[in-house]
Design a protein around this nucleic acid. Structure first.
Lengths: 204, 204
DNA sequence: GTCTATAAAATGATAGAC
DNA sequence: GTCTATCATTTTATAGAC
């Protein structure tokens, strides 16, 4: 019995399987065999689609960069105030982190793996996507709360990503969810200090 | 020609060699062979000292936790103000990061590796050490600037570690040192908002 | 105790039948 | 195109000479 499946689809299946294996077992144990087993494919099918193990990992990083963490955009943002907006966004992320720690662990592993692996900017583009996503969210939050940002958006976005990454690592270390939320609260206040009413002049 | 060396010393040599290999090539490529080659020892010597590859990695994490990143304590802190103190400390760390990126990359890799590997809290104790070190530095900064912290020290320390980790990852992604320093400046201002004159009451 | 030689297992990649 | 069987290499771990 032969399964005739479009190459593109098989490729997607392999990448999806790799993502699951990475989340479950880590980048180090994501072997070619483990991936094809997860995808329920014969080993031979692998090299028909990907030239090498490296090529698969590269595809995984690119895919993950595109569709992961975008769920954050769906987070319901509290429009009561800028502080509330940032806090609700961070808490929604922390909820996600607590619910699926392996996912975030996998994303960090993939980032460091990319950094080790490729001389070109694979990790750079991964984080660039994060920056842009968060910049969009910050802009959205400003509109929602009738405010504007008093500091450059890309600077704020980068800082917020740093905080998210830092909260993630800290929580992965000790699972202290309450502490993570306290950090989030600290940051929310700090960001609120960089917002102004939408109609105010450049420096109040 | 036989080298008769105390087992404790050989153990230390292997751990030190492992750290160098990790920094240079990453956790994934830190094989037993690579480590003994780095330590200039025969392969057989390895299993005489460590029962397994895992045991070595565990020893590495414990060692690294103890002595790394403590160099931050030597950073000259600007006592002009709380903001200046935090900023100078973070900038000193960024200097270190830029000078030896592989070192910080290795520390992050080891943390995630520990998290993957051991069910017990190896990563937890690693970060716990960071928390305590930074808490000490924050306390020192307060004394130096004649202020006191208006928020719990452990909460501030945890947040600062999160920021340091986040700055590190962001910089590793794109090597944007100026951006890292802007994030540091943002954070320094935020921390200053949580300080009070040393003699003031609990809430001003 | 120290080292060389080798076993045993895992992994990336390919050959070749169908 | 698809899959089974296999190769070549790498890696952890051990056996056994000295």
């Amino acid at each position: 019995m032969i399964r005739r499946i479009p190459p593109g689809q098989r490729r997607d299946e392999l990448v999806a399987a790799a993502v699951r294996v990475i989340a479950r077992s880590g980048v180090a144990k994501t072997t070619t065999r483990a991936v094809v087993a997860e995808a329920d494919m014969p080993l031979g099918a692998f090299h028909y689609i990907f030239g090498s193990h490296d090529e698969l990992m590269r595809a995984v990083i690119e895919t993950v960069t595109d569709d992961e963490r975008l769920v954050a955009e769906a987070a319901s943002i509290d429009a009561t105030s800028v502080e509330a907006a940032i806090l609700s966004g961070l808490n929604a992320y922390i909820d996600l982190l607590v619910a699926e720690p392996e996912r975030e662990l996998a994303l960090l592993e993939l980032g460091l793996f990319a950094r080790r692996q490729s001389a070109d900017g694979l990790m750079r583009s991964q984080w660039q996507t994060y920056f842009e996503t968060v910049a969009g969210l910050l802009q959205y939050a400003a509109v929602l709360t009738g405010t504007r940002w008093a500091s450059p958006l890309d600077e704020l976005a980068r800082t917020l990503i740093a905080v998210v990454d830092g909260i993630t690592i800290g929580w992965l270390a000790d699972h202290d969810t309450a502490a993570a939320r306290r950090t989030a609260a600290f940051v929310a206040v700090a960001f609120a200090a960089h917002s102004r009413p939408a109609s105010s002049p450049t420096w109040s």
